[in-house]
């Protein structure tokens, strides 16, 4: 009786162990398969279309004949929107992270932290929609533009999406700075601001950079809001007040009409590869920075 119980237990253990192993390995397998599929479809483009004209071509005319798949305007569209968003989100993010971590009284700190998390919970389509009806007209009016659907509008909208990531990561980086550093600075007669500027910021520099990187990652991969609000003109932008089209928006907008197995379809996958490489590099840099902060 007893031994059969032990036997059952052993089988149970074995099954559970294997099931967990399977679950763990599956996620890796899936990532790998997705990547393979992406590569396979994306690289099919280069059988008939030169990789050089893809990467450095300045015209994205997928349905003209012959079609042109130059991603430079899309890449620059993404870069413009991302840069704009980061320029807005980083100063605001640093400010609010410092306020939350260092200055706000405890009760307010908890409220602010919860609010920032809440901002992250708003679906991007909702933000995009609100931006479309409120922000775009405002931008149009303020800058006397023919349309409010510009890179700038996208940047402002995306700044709001990057803010939660940036603020909460930076806040963590600040809180991780040992109390002894603060005490040391204050005991030397530093004011609170001097302490923040001369000790807190240098001590958390890599964590702050990691926060910014992850913010960039969040912004560059964002699709729905930019699709709605940036105007979708696949031209090389010369300023933030022009309509642009990002890589993500291109894939989202054109995937439905591209003929499966055609060059246009493959080109969209190739854009996917470029995006994947960019976000991968950003995430690797960010986690490297986070690790160096902990040391």
């Amino acid at each position: 009786m007893k031994s059969s119980r032990a036997y059952l237990n052993r089988i149970f253990e074995f099954v559970i162990e294997k099931a967990i192993f399977l679950a763990g390995i599956l996620s890796i397998v899936f990532v790998f398969l997705i990547f393979l599929f992406l590569i396979k479809e994306g690289f099919s483009l280069f059988r008939t279309y030169s990789i050089f004209s893809f990467l450095f071509g300045t015209k994205w005319y997928p349905i003209s004949s012959p079609p042109q798949f130059g991603i430079v305007p899309l890449l620059l569209g993404s870069v413009a929107v991302t840069l704009g968003a980061i320029l807005i989100a980083v100063p605001l993010g640093i400010g609010s992270a410092i306020y939350i971590a260092e200055i706000a009284p405890r009760w307010l700190r908890e409220i602010l932290k919860a609010t920032v998390e809440f901002l992250a919970a708003i679906p991007s389509i909702v933000l995009g929609f609100i931006g479309l009806v409120t922000l775009a007209p405002l931008v149009k009016k303020l800058f006397h533009l023919p349309t409010g659907l510009t890179a700038l509008s996208g940047s402002i909208m995306l700044a709001f999406m990057a803010m939660p990531t940036i603020v909460s990561m930076m806040e963590d980086a600040f809180t991780a700075v040992p109390k002894s550093y603060r005490e040391g600075a204050l005991a030397l007669g530093a004011t609170r601001w001097e302490m923040i500027r001369r000790v807190l910021l240098p001590a958390s520099a890599s964590g702050m950079l990691a926060a910014i990187m992850l913010g960039i990652g969040r912004v560059i991969g964002e699709t729905m809001a930019v699709l709605m609000i940036t105007g979708n003109a696949a031209r090389i932008p010369t300023g933030l007040t022009q309509p642009v089209r990002t890589m993500t928006a291109t894939i989202a907008a054109e995937m439905g009409e591209a003929v499966q197995g055609g060059n246009h379809y493959f080109a969209l996958f190739a854009i996917g590869i470029v995006l994947f490489i960019i976000t991968f590099l950003i995430n690797v840099t960010a986690s490297f920075l986070v690790r160096s902060q902990r040391k």
Binding site: P178, S180, Y181, E183, G184, A185, A187, R198, V199, P202, A203
Partner: peptide
């Protein structure tokens, strides 16, 4: 002031 644990700044 000098503290219990050495606390040079980074």
């Amino acid at each position: 002031m000098v503290f219990q644990r050495p606390n040079p700044f980074p």
